[in-house]
């Protein structure tokens, strides 16, 4: 009789191993653990056994039942997992299908580069100061040490308005006078961003309007050595930690001494390439010590105060950084251009 139980157990476990879906599992349960299953019948009929056999048969019968129940639970888990797995398999995607195209807004490339410039100078303590795009001749030229008819005026091709003495600013430098007159005699550290205008043919290299960011620091102890350090810092922030700078004497009427600042070409690393015209250097900034006449026009005593100023072209920097060969792209606003940023 005990052998019968052993056989039953083995048979049931073997059958369970064959059950691979929920239906087969239910049928197995009916067969081996159901009310009319032979094990149930056996356990129900225990009382009919001779008293001596009963304890052993009962113990063994219940043992088999527990084994089958545990096996069932394990089987159920196995089959559920298989069912889920099958279902998941059937839900597999072609992950190479394109993602849902969302409309992403973008800033204009000039705004992007301006913001980067703002951020760097802000960290260096230079606040943003803005002044009008349409300016008085006085502010654009005369107060900047460029008197009427002076040959230095040839450096700027100017749009004049029909109003006498009113023009489109050719550079952001008039903002220097505005800022100094507002803050003198307090020390000053500002950048002056804005749109500038030049009477030029519109070509791949020249535009009638472009942004400029000018910087100005005035204080009791500002030096040429400070100017060099400050611009070298800016270049490292803008063009990378390793960016080297070189300083060349140049001329601007509103600064003296004046200089042009080159940054080592980041396209070729200084080896020479078409972008840097094989010189290894890119002209990035014009700068110098604020001319005493300009300081005085701004309301500072040039014997006590000194200052430096610098200017850069954001579009030019963007062109160099991205290899843009045509400045007309900026105001052309072709979406195929804008959407690359």
């Amino acid at each position: 009789m005990l052998e019968q139980l052993d056989t039953l157990e083995q048979e049931a476990l073997a059958a369970l191993a064959q059950a691979n879906d929920p239906g087969a599992l239910a049928a197995w349960k009916q067969t081996y653990l159901g009310r009319s299953a032979s094990l149930s019948t056996f356990l129900g009929d225990l009382g009919k056994l001779p008293a001596a056999e009963r304890p052993l048969a009962g113990k063994r019968g219940n043992e088999v039942k527990r084994t089958l129940e545990a096996a069932y639970a394990a089987g159920e888990e196995r089959i559920n997992a298989a069912v889920l797995n099958h279902a998941l398999q059937s839900e597999a995607l072609d992950v190479t299908l394109p993602g849902r195209p969302l409309r992403r807004g973008r800033l204009h490339p000039s705004t992007l580069i301006l913001r980067r410039i703002y951020a760097i100078w802000a960290e260096m303590g230079f606040q943003i100061y803005r002044s009008p795009n349409v300016e008085l001749d006085d502010y654009n030229f005369t107060l900047l040490n460029i008197p009427p008819h002076h040959p230095a005026r040839d450096m700027w091709d100017t749009f004049y308005t029909t109003e006498e003495g009113v023009l489109l600013r050719t550079h952001t430098s008039p903002g220097q006078i505005h800022a100094m007159r507002e803050f003198a005699p307090a020390p000053l550290r500002v950048i002056l961003p804005g749109m500038c205008f030049r009477y030029e043919q519109i070509t791949a290299r020249s535009e009638i309007q472009f942004h400029q960011v000018e910087g100005l620091a005035v204080g009791p102890g500002i030096t040429f050595a400070n100017l060099k350090a400050t611009l070298a810092d800016f270049a490292r922030r803008m063009f990378g930690e390793g960016a080297r700078t070189q300083f060349r004497a140049d001329h601007f009427p509103f600064t003296e001494p004046s200089m042009e600042v080159d940054v080592e070409c980041f396209v070729c690393g200084g080896k020479g390439c078409p972008v840097c015209k094989f010189s290894g250097w890119l002209e990035i900034l014009g700068s110098g010590m604020v001319h005493p006449t300009v300081l005085r026009n701004g309301g500072y005593d040039p014997k006590v105060f000194s200052g430096f100023a610098f200017g850069m072209g954001p579009e030019r920097i963007a062109m160099l950084r991205h290899g843009i060969e045509d400045i007309r792209y900026f105001w052309g606003n072709d979406l195929r251009f804008l959407e690359q940023f």
Binding site: P187, L188, R189, G219, G221, T223, N226, K228, A229
Partner: peptide, 11 residues
Amino acid sequence: IPEVQIADLLP
């Protein structure tokens, strides 16, 4: 001419 950080106080 050396590169020297600004010594003036921050305005």
